[in-house]
Amino acid sequence: MAFALLTLLSAVVGVTLCYPAAFEDLGANGSKCNRTSIRFLALGDWGGLPSAPYVTTVQITTAQEMSKVAEQMGADFILALGDNFYYKGVESVDSPRFQETFESVYTSKYLRVPWYVVAGNHDHAGNVTAQIEYSQRSDRWKFPSYYYELNFLIPNTGKTLTIIMLDTVMLCGHSDDFTDEKPRGPLRAVDANRQLVWLQDRLARSKADFLLVAGHYPVWSVSEHGPTKCLLKKLRPLLIKHNVTSYLCGHDHNLQYLEESGVGYVVSGAGNFVDPDFSHFDHVPKDSLKYFNGQESTKGGFVHAEVTNSMLFLTYFQSKGTSLFRTVLSQRKFG
């Protein structure tokens, strides 16, 4: 009996020590001897159109520039920050939208890397489970669950990167862009609470040198949707408490960078449309906004990130081929 109890206790301890999940494989790029960083692209609100031609000019030009930047600067993976299929997501895993809006657009070999996906409000208007199931059909579409954690070893540095992927619609509720409806609360409180408890646990456990959180809704934004009250209440205190490096999102269709209480806030929502709206400028902390671009002449944009042994470099690109803005964040400090 005592032996059996000891065996059970050892198993429990073993499970605890095995947390978090295994490190993601960076593939051939990650194994090169001269690699000392991880590079990725962050792209939100890229989801084409529900009828022919199923794409927008902004989406096409953004995809082309993403390929060029990935070739020149490197991209081990891509964070797809929601609103993957306008305007009502997909209905089933057999939807032709996967081919029309995703596979047939991002065709460059430099974009044939893992796409780590979260759902946006337009995705929740359809069947998010179908998008999760598509992970079994595509060699690059990685959407294992509504929310999940990614862990990476930064090559040849001994440093680590963790990215926590959230479903902010499940957490805060649906929103309707056509009526400017704000999230009014989660559809199922039990699901929202379960995700929040999971998030609190993952943040508390994390010893990563760089800790990023990604979702669809913004915490801070100066544009049409503005700050998300639910995230200001539920997420922002956790980002500050646990010394999160940066929060990445979409939802507003432009490029923004804000810094507040030691956290960098990235809005990268210009993958399919571009919106110059600036109506919530007075609704973010004074001097927090460091960069904003919603000019239609940019023809869209995205963010390139590089994580080294001590720094996170963020570079904003427009689809016309120009670097717009660059900033640097330091690794987390403990104690």
Rank of each mutant, 00 (worst) to 15 (best):
T7W: 03
N293L: 12
L258K: 10
L324M: 10
L41I: 13
D252H: 12
R326H: 11
R194C: 05
S246R: 00
V222R: 15
L153T: 13
R140I: 12
F40I: 00
Y217R: 02
G47A: 03
Q59F: 08
E306G: 03
G14T: 13
Y54N: 10
C33D: 10
V197I: 15
G44M: 01
G294L: 08
V267W: 07
R112W: 09
N34Q: 07
S297R: 13
D176E: 09
C18W: 08
L111H: 09
A208W: 00
L329V: 03
T308E: 08
E65N: 10
G264N: 06
S145G: 08
I132H: 03
S297A: 14
L161E: 01
D209I: 00
H280K: 15
A189W: 06
F3S: 15
S37Q: 01
S297P: 05
S221L: 12
I60E: 12
P276S: 14
L239D: 05
P237K: 03
V105N: 08
K299L: 15
G126L: 07
V93C: 02
Y291W: 10
K142M: 12
G30K: 10
L41Q: 04
A75S: 14
V113Y: 05
A28Y: 05
D167V: 05
Y87M: 14
L203A: 02
A52K: 14
K229R: 14
S221I: 12
Y147K: 05
M165Y: 03
H174T: 11
Y265C: 02
F334P: 00
A119N: 08
H242L: 00
L289P: 03
D201E: 13
L26W: 12
A28P: 02
V15G: 10
S310Q: 11
N309S: 15
K32I: 11
H280F: 12
H283C: 12
S246D: 01
E260T: 04
A70W: 08
D83E: 04
F281E: 13
S319W: 07
A52V: 15
G185M: 05
V55I: 15
G294T: 11
H225T: 15
T57R: 14
E260V: 03
V128S: 09
F98K: 04
H253D: 15
R137L: 05
P227H: 09
Q131E: 14
V105P: 09
P155H: 11
L17I: 11
Y247N: 00
Y86E: 07
F102W: 13
L212A: 00
S51C: 08
Y257V: 13
V328T: 14
A22I: 08
S92R: 07
L231C: 06
